[in-house]
Design a protein around this nucleic acid. Structure first.
Lengths: 255, 255
DNA sequence: CCCAATTTGTTCGTATGTATA
DNA sequence: TTATACATACGAACAAATTGG
């Protein structure tokens, strides 16, 4: 694991910016992370070093990092350093996967690839991704199992321009989560997402994949995933069989 | 609006507590708010005053208040003060109401009371509320309209012991949201909630209330609302007609 | 096992800026 | 205008966790 001792950073002048210093510092750090100057998993330079480089006090630097921590963009470890957050199963489960068994049992799903093909963005996907209709994309279909049972059917649309060189083989042989693959192989970090949920009747395809009766009520989750710069990078429609599982949402978890 | 100039607060000794001072300060402030020493809408004493009373620096005091702000328990207003957060339509919409029209239009619902009766907790409600089976409760049924259309059917279970003296008249004639009523009339502040969502087929009752076909897929939201001390105070089952509306969830909103 | 160096975590105090009444 | 309150920024000291010798 690389430890950055110094990275290219702007020295900030007080008042030169129309915002508080700690905001400018945050933007500068974000820029360095987005640009790849510090890769996921790497440690940032120490706080004292960063503060000196950018010409601000340690307190101001920490204020900026506090924000990045709150957004899960970096993680602090006392005695070790501050690291660019990496996507892995823990974070996936915590931040991006909301389905668990009705009795509260929470486990990582087993993912099974159903299909992988080059395609073009339809109207809905193009709109969601803020891209042009008909733009080339990769379309991927997964089935997720929990406790051995098929529970989620995922369909993903990825703009081909953002994922150049992604093949079925590379996708299938990823060592960790999908978002980990985006991050390590394509420099795309999913920072947050918007989801819209609705109930509908399972169509023939979804029913077959999930092993439920056609017409059965299922939960549909439509997600746009955004990168660090808030640019849409993935459009996903998940269908969830909620006979024995729930979609869980915690409103205002305690700190 | 009352402005507290001094409230009963413990003076904290460093090291006397097995946690950082700012955590102890936060707990002490929470205690004061829970006890009603500062009522919702009231201003806390100024930061300098609080810091002096509790024997900590302003920086430490602010660190504690930062946490309370993040949890929406208090709100700061520069130049005015720090206020105990009040439940109102804005907060309701922002934190506890997740249904909006599919095109993204977000409005406060019109609420219509369908029934109000004294009852007893069934197994499911008792479990959710952490109370004994058969304990007296109030059971309330509402219909919520968005853009004139019936969209949500709510059933609420309230432990009678926590809402003594709540009558249909008082409930019906509340001037604002339900959570505002809990807060102002019963000293119960809903601070957060857990929700579990699933899809199912509308039963006859829900279908009639929402004006959809029986057997139509609808979204069911089961919510436990917790007060400041994390005690369950309300159990609610909402049924949402998602033909033209969605349940919206923002994962990691930016700060 | 202990020590020393490094890094983040906590706490203090002070000064100045900005918004409000 | 003045006073008050929160917001930003600085600098310093020590505590706690980690790592490597």
């Amino acid at each position: 694991m690389k430890v950055s001792t110094a990275i290219a950073l702007q020295r900030l002048q007080p008042e030169a910016v129309g915002m508080p210093m700690y905001r400018a510092v945050k933007r500068e750090l974000l820029r360095a992370i987005e640009s790849g100057a510090v890769a996921p998993g790497d440690a940032l330079p120490a706080e004292a070093m960063l503060a000196q480089q950018m010409g601000v006090s340690v307190g101001t630097l920490r204020r900026a990092v506090d924000d990045l921590v709150a957004e899960h963009i970096v993680v602090r470890r006392q005695g070790r350093g501050t690291f660019v957050a990496m996507h892995g199963s823990e974070r996936f489960l915590f931040q991006f996967f909301h389905v668990e068994r009705s009795d509260g049992l929470r486990q990582a799903p087993e993912v099974e690839l159903l299909s992988f093909e080059k395609s073009r963005l339809d109207d809905e996907a193009a709109t969601a991704l803020g891209r042009r209709l008909g733009e080339p994309c990769l379309q991927i279909e997964n089935r997720l199992r929990l406790q051995g049972r098929p529970v989620v059917h995922d369909r993903l649309w990825l703009p081909a321009l953002l994922f150049r060189g992604l093949t079925e083989k590379r996708f299938r042989e990823r060592p960790s989560t999908i978002y980990h693959l985006y991050q390590t192989e394509f420099g795309i970090t999913v920072a947050r997402a918007h989801e819209r949920l609705r109930a509908l009747s399972a169509d023939r395809h979804a029913a077959r994949v999930l092993g439920v009766a056609q017409g059965q009520a299922v939960l549909q989750v439509r997600r746009v995933a955004l990168d660090l710069g808030a640019q849409p990078v993935e459009w996903r429609i998940s269908t969830v069989a909620t006979a024995q599982h729930d979609y869980v949402n915690l409103l205002s978890r305690p700190v």
